[in-house]
Simulated scan of single mutants.
Amino acid sequence: MIQQAGTSGPTTGQGYKLVVIVVGLAAVVVTMLCAFALPSINSGPRHLPTGVAGPQEATTAVSKALQGEEWDVTTYDSEDDLKTAVKERDVMGGIVLAPGKVTVFTATAGGPQAAMTLTSAATAIAKQQQANVAITDLKPFPDDDPKGAGFSSAALPIIIGGMFPAVLLTRLFPGHSGLRLRLAGGFAFALVAGFAVTAFLQYGTGSLSGEYLITSLGTSLGMAALVMTLLGLESLIGMAGFGLGAVVIMLLGNPLSGFVSGPHWLPDGWATVGQMLPPGAAGSLLRANSFFAGTGASGPALILTAWATLGLALMLIADRRGTRATRPSAEAPALVV
């Protein structure tokens, strides 16, 4: 074979590199599929906190009927106690038993799938007892968005809203000289975007019903946790650090967040991991502030604050390291000619 001068074929090293890239990309695709598909396949009620009230004999029978990993049943002395427990998020819902009547109390805003599962179970119990069923939703979604579509759609904007500005700020203000501008820009974006997203969902679509200021600050905290963590990783490690953070957020944080269903719809270990990551904590905080007057908000808020603080600490370390690298040595001996 005659080869033209000045040209050369691929080397063995390049061939190996190509194989590694192809195999690596295929592994990433399979990992993405596993991360998104497995939680959906294995989703379902897991230890749903459920209350029961009524005559002792009836509540005992219902507690036995709701045994298994799907339920975590607590007996209450009265209907009022059970309703208070639902509103305070001690349980996801409850069943009150009376002669010829079964009353179901749900909190759809706390998890629509859990509410439907509890209603279905109570209906089956009432059918066995030949009793009437009454359903009361103590914490529904707002009337303007009764299915919670707006709340569900907030997951991706919050996640992307934490990733995209980190990329943009890194490109616009690169290196050590732009680090403090990236820091200021990240905080400013999180604050403005949090208030804007909340305003759209609360006043534009009517999907939220909490106090606007508190809900907005919570949304801003969720975005700050995402953007500051990614900026911190990029500042200290480079784009490899940003890539690692983005993979964790998208491949673990997003599918394990329980943003739409609530954490009780995922296997126990996965749910715990998801709630410790920014997307899951941001969703739980938004749910608590929007529909439950802040009940249950302290845990997610602390987790998000920890992530934002971690990102800030990484940026401060990178700033100090960069300052030392660029500082001229004052003790360097002068050259004598």
Rank of each mutant, 00 (worst) to 15 (best):
L252A: 13
W265R: 02
M250L: 15
I249E: 06
G238C: 02
G294S: 03
S298E: 13
G243V: 07
T295Y: 01
T272G: 09
G280P: 04
A282I: 04
L244M: 12
S290E: 08
V248C: 07
Q275S: 14
N254T: 14
V260C: 09
A293T: 13
S261Q: 13
A240G: 12
G294Q: 00
A288M: 06
R287S: 09
W270Y: 10
P263A: 09
Q275W: 06
V260Y: 12
G258T: 10
G238Y: 00
F291D: 05
W265F: 09
G245Y: 01
S290G: 07
G280H: 04
M250E: 13
D268N: 15
G243C: 06
S261L: 08
A282K: 03
A246S: 14
P300D: 00
I249A: 02
S284K: 12
A240E: 08
Q275Y: 09
N254G: 10
S290Q: 05
G243E: 05
P255V: 03
V248A: 14
L277F: 02
H264P: 02
P267C: 12
Q275L: 12
T272Y: 09
I237D: 01
V248T: 15
L286W: 00
L277D: 02
A246F: 13
L286G: 08
V273T: 10
A288N: 04
G253Q: 06
W265H: 07
L244G: 10
M250N: 13
G274A: 10
G283V: 11
S261M: 11
M276R: 13
N254A: 15
